[in-house]
Structures are given as C-alpha cells and as structure tokens.
Design a binder for these strands. Sequence first.
DNA 1: CGATTGACGTACG
DNA 2: TCGTACGCCAATC
Length: 114
Amino acid sequence: MTGNKQYSFFEDVYDVVRLIPEGRVTSYGAVAAYLGAKMSSRMVGWAMNGAANVSPPVPAQRVVNRIGMLTGKHHFGEPYAMQKLLEAEGLTIENDKILNFQKAYWNPLEELAI
DNA sequence: CGATTGACGTACG
DNA sequence: TCGTACGCCAATC
C-alpha cells in the first residue's frame, strides 16, 4: 500500500475506547488485554497521550487505571475536566476516584467479545 | 545513538 | 495488607 498508514497499537486503542458506552468506564489493562497485549498496559496510556490529537476525538475520560483513579486527569488541559465529563455521564467521582467503579466497569473482552 | 520517562499492572518482600 | 521493584514499548531529551 502506498499509504504508510500502518495499523498501530494506538489505532486499535482509539477504536476500542470510542466503543465505550456513555456512563461506562474501562481500564488501560482491559483495552490492552483485548488487543492481546495486557502486559503492555503502559502503551495504552501512551496512546491516550495522542488521543487528543486524533479524529474523531477519543473519550479518554472513560479510560482509567485498574482501581478507577483518574490518573490522567492532568492531561485534559484542566485537571477537573475529566471528572466533570464523567460526572456528566452519570458517574460519581470522589477523591479522584470513581465510586462503584466495578459496577460501571466496561470490559471489552466481554462486551465486544473476541 | 543511549538513557530516561510515562495517562499501568503484576510480582515479591 | 501495604510498599517497593520490575517489565512493557514508544517517544523524548
């Protein structure tokens, strides 16, 4: 193909994150596991680093770490932007952590199936 | 080109 | 149970 557009790990990450329904959240490891690279969970976080630069926009606010903590809130321009977005979707955040995270957890391995 | 960092996760003490 | 160390791969310095 003349297009050098190679399907990178990042492209797959963005695609999965866009499939996250509103009011639901998932973890970096879950996305990585769905892509078959659960040990490379850091790459998912790094992919999100460029998520704000891709189109269509990726709901990176729905992706948090395994404990439901908004570790990447500082990457949204405003630290509280991520929390506001999640609260607007019906989630409850306290102390930078999602309450009932396990209840709102959206597992691509089960929802999207392999 | 080598070393360090990073939006994580697991293993070990 | 909690804290620390290591591994993952890519980007940056």
